[in-house]
Nucleic acid binder design. Structure first.
Length: 491
RNA sequence: CGGGGUGUAGCGUAGUCCGGUCAUCGCGCCUGCUUUGGGAGCAGGAGGUCACAGGUUCGAAUCCUGUUACCCCGACCA
């Protein structure tokens, strides 16, 4: 019997409305699965961006920007890359509109056909490597450590809000190095940056690992990833970092002269995370009352709600709230005072729970008299009275505690739903009924991986970086294996 | 792209089988008064090409055809 698998991605759609709405584009446009990110949702993305950007800068990277349009010919240069993306590209064929001769409206001007079609970037490796050819001549030009914040378009067969929209925002790092070792080191360094961000800022525990050849990025020699478990036990790839070998350097003829004037192809990496992270955030922490945001990413960390019966009380409460809010802001806490008179307190409580605000501070005439606040925390939905004296330190500590608690909760869930399995029956039970991660032996072949996917819909999410060397036999074929990999159904 | 489902006011919906005062209800919105420690009450009010385009019919939200978008399941994918 299958246990209730909630909440699943679709169960969160209510909460998504706080952050994002589906784009209501013109009918018949054929544009599917785009999203309008509302200010509250975008504020979260901006916070994510700021944290990541600071980490990129701290590891020596710089931001740059490359065109959204990629000539079709660039795309054909790296064979496996084409294979990976060809089926999901938006293509620009014309550059002009005109009035229809029969007066029926605006039509594409057939005279204005582009000689070479332009691809709306699904990722920027090709146009960036075409550019790097011109930037790189000598070992003195290396490494190039560049990141781009951009939008990309992938014409997916099936879209899912946040997890797979046709257009999404992301960052893509593209680096060029003189040696294989240096490039590998870079790819792994950036994976660490992602893992660190996911766990410390998003409070989302992740498993770091390698992708199998089947799951690897189109054009990569090695793909590193972080995998997270959502509350329904399904896996979500939260970020990837690719070691591209010399594939793109060879495709775009990017060579450098070393100290002895020998010409060599350069080594490459690329790495990215997207607005999918917002989906991960929601699906990891949110509950039936709405969003739950970790303090580090909450646009509003503390909301203050006054309770009063008359104008006189209102005035004194607002004065107190302003004073305390200023003190909280002085230590870097973002505070909203909701003194809107048109809504009742109960309505406001629900509203801010829905929005995931970590801490709510309520004050009424009685509290003012007793020099206290009623302080409620979103993660546990509990409340307590705290003395006004020392309230700033108390709230600061509370925010830290919430951040840690969210991480711990998510980690506990993952631990509870991760099983070491040794037989095919146990494996199927974990995948189909327990709906969790199965740590199982695998014989290392693509054929077996494919077969297991066919039979159970589970894929190898990753070969963990901290995999323990251990003699075992493949869960399906019985062939020898040297360690356990992570199997799960994935979004 | 294949299979299934859905589209009615800003949001959520009833009505569709069986065509005819059926455009229903809730939330939200506007006005007024009373309210304010967990989604307030009463009274009045505004708001809809029933997804779009054809067709059948005296008459279509309802039946037929086509298109489109969304949701779910596949295939694909961050």
């Amino acid at each position: 019997m299958s246990e209730k698998l909630t909440p699943r991605h679709e169960d969160y759609s209510r909460w998504y409305n706080e952050l994002v709405v589906r784009a209501d584009l013109a009918e018949q446009s054929g544009v599917r699965g785009c999203m309008v990110i509302k200010p509250y949702g975008y504020a979260i993305w901006e916070k994510m961006r700021d944290y990541l950007d600071a980490s990129f800068k701290a590891t020596g990277h710089q931001n740059a920007y490359f065109p959204i349009f990629i000539p079709k010919s660039y795309f054909t240069k790296e064979a496996s890359h084409v294979d990976g993306f060809a089926k999901e590209c938006a293509v620009v064929t014309h550059y002009r509109l005109k009035n229809a001769e029969d007066g029926s409206g605006i039509v594409v001007d057939p005279e204005a056909r582009l000689e070479e079609e332009l691809i709306v970037r699904p990722t920027s490796e090709t146009i960036i490597w075409d550019t790097y050819r011109r930037w790189i001549q000598s070992y003195r030009d290396l490494p190039i450590l560049v990141n781009q914040w951009a939008n990309v378009v992938r014409w997916e067969m099936r879209t899912r809000l946040f997890l797979r929209t046709s257009e999404f925002l992301w960052q893509e790092g593209h680096t060029a190095h003189a040696t294989r070792e240096e490039a590998l080191e870079e790819a792994r360094r950036m994976l660490e940056v992602y893992a660190d961000f996911a766990e410390k800022v998003m409070a989302v525990p992740v498993i770091k690992g390698f992708k199998t050849a089947n799951e690897r990025f189109a054009g990569a020699d090695e793909t590193f990833c972080i995998e997270a478990m959502m509350q329904d036990g399904k896996a979500l790839q939260a970020g990837t970092s690719h070691f591209l070998g010399q594939n793109f350097a060879k495709a775009f003829d990017v060579k450098y002269a070393d100290k002895d004037n020998n010409m060599s192809y350069v080594w490459a990496t690329s790495w990215g995370v997207s607005t999918r992270l917002m989906g991960a955030l929601i699906m990891t922490h949110s509950d039936d009352s709405g969003l739950v945001l970790p303090p580090a990413l909450a646009p509003i960390q503390v909301v203050m709600v006054p309770i009063y019966k008359n104008a006189e009380q209102y005035t004194s409460l607002v004065a107190k709230m302003n004073e305390t809010a200023a003190a909280l802001r002085a230590v870097g806490i973002s505070v909203k005072i909701d003194d809107d008179d048109s809504q009742k307190p109960g309505w406001k409580f629900h509203e801010y729970e829905l929005k995931g605000v970590p801490v709510r501070m309520v004050i009424g005439p009685k509290d003012l008299e007793k020099n206290q606040w009623e302080v409620a925390r979103r993660d546990t939905l509990t409340k307590e009275f705290l003395p006004d004296e020392g309230i700033v330190d108390a709230v600061k500590a509370l925010l830290d505690d919430i951040q840690q608690n969210l991480y711990n909760k998510a980690l506990n869930l993952r631990r509870e739903r991760t099983y070491e399995v040794n037989t095919w029956e146990e494996f199927v039970d974990v995948i189909d009924n327990k709906c969790g991660f199965a740590l199982a032996h695998w014989d290392g072949t693509s054929e077996t991986e494919e077969k297991i996917k066919e039979l159970t819909k589970a894929t190898i999410r990753c070969i963990p970086m901290d995999m323990v060397e251990e003699e075992g036999v493949d869960i399906l074929t019985g062939k020898p294996s040297r360690g356990r990999v992570v199997f799960a159904k994935a979004y």
